[in-house]
């Protein structure tokens, strides 16, 4: 055996040469062993032995190499496992992720193609693990630790995305800001632990009642919360804010130091972008926040709607 043939035989990756009839002109040991049934493929017609590969990307790549002379790359991201190749023994035997290169070759006036195969399963596994961890970190960075709902950072991202979508599709978008009334006094009177419980109860209510409608809720900071209503106009948002106001009152969380009610209540500001006008993120937040401020000035435990932008 020639030296280069010995080298190919000990190689820990696959090499196969097909001729113009798709017949296996050469296959190295590693690749032959990895094919599901370990019969020798040497001299066989590849796509007759594996008819299920016909018309698939690997078949197209081989065809392109042999007919048009163009090389192809098959990446594990887009083709997890183009060839029926397995590693491991017994129960642990599994089809592995592959990275494949198909290149045209000419020898003595005849066309061939070289298929080079690598087992990339450990890379795929490592990357899946990294992704999972990055996702977890990301989730942590976007969630409010106390209440488990979205934090301000996440709210900004969601609003930006929804606003862009509304702008693109010419739909409406509403925003509700609300603030628990006399929360500082609540904390001072009942202690921070009770304060935390109160915030959690309100967040739970929001999460359970609103997220199923496709509304997005977030804790903006302190005792301030917000609700994004994609596709909804001012009337719907006002109606929803009014409902939230009543239901937060109906939670019946005792608030001895409130000046407006014996229980926890909240003040609401509502602003919207209509389907016709366009609006910036800051503009929308400022208008909702301003409406909330006016709700507080007007005596709290109520909903105030920002003036329509197009009437300004």
């Amino acid at each position: 055996m020639q030296l280069f043939e010995q080298a190919l035989a000990v190689l820990q990756s696959g090499v196969m040469i097909l001729d113009a009839d798709y017949r296996v002109h050469f296959i190295n040991q590693w690749l032959n062993k990895a094919f599901d049934d370990s019969e020798d493929l040497q001299g066989e017609l590849l796509f007759a032995v594996y008819p299920e590969l016909e018309g698939r990307r690997i078949h197209q790549a081989v065809e392109q190499a042999l007919k048009t002379g163009l090389p192809s790359l098959l990446s594990p991201g887009l083709n997890r496992s183009p060839l029926p190749l397995y590693h491991g023994q017994g129960d642990r035997r599994e089809r592995f992720a592959q990275s494949i290169r198909v290149q045209p070759m000419q020898s003595e006036g005849k066309r061939f193609c070289v298929i080079e195969v690598q087992d990339v399963s450990s890379m795929v596994r490592r990357e899946a693990l990294l992704n999972k961890q990055a996702e977890k970190l990301n989730q942590m960075a976007l969630t409010d630790e106390l209440t488990g709902i979205a934090n301000r950072r996440h709210f900004n991202m969601m609003l930006e995305k929804e606003l862009r979508r509304a702008e693109l599709q010419g739909t409406a978008l509403s925003l509700v800001f609300f603030d628990i009334d006399f929360f500082k006094q609540y904390n001072d009177h009942l202690g921070h632990q009770a304060g935390d419980k109160c915030l959690m109860a309100v967040a739970d209510y929001l999460k359970n009642q609103l997220e199923s409608y496709g509304y997005q809720v977030a804790r903006y900071g302190g005792e301030e919360f917000c609700i994004i209503l994609p596709g909804q106009d001012l009337e719907v948002a006002q109606h929803l804010a009014e409902r939230c106001r009543k239901e937060i009152e109906a939670l019946q969380l005792k608030h001895p130091s409130s000046n407006v009610a014996p229980v926890v209540t909240a003040s609401f500001g509502v602003a919207a972008k209509s389907d016709k006008q366009s609006e910036t993120q800051t503009g929308l937040i400022l208008r909702a926040d301003n409406a909330l401020y006016r709700a507080k000035l007007a005596g709290r435990n109520q909903v105030v709607v920002a003036e329509r932008q197009d009437q300004n």
């Binding site: 790359l73 990446s75 991201g77 990357e127 990294l130 990055a134 996702e135």
Partner: peptide
Amino acid sequence: SQVPIEQLSEIEQDALSE
């Protein structure tokens, strides 16, 4: 996929090459 990383991973680089 929804990878929250601002750089192309190895697999993504290969996929883009393809």
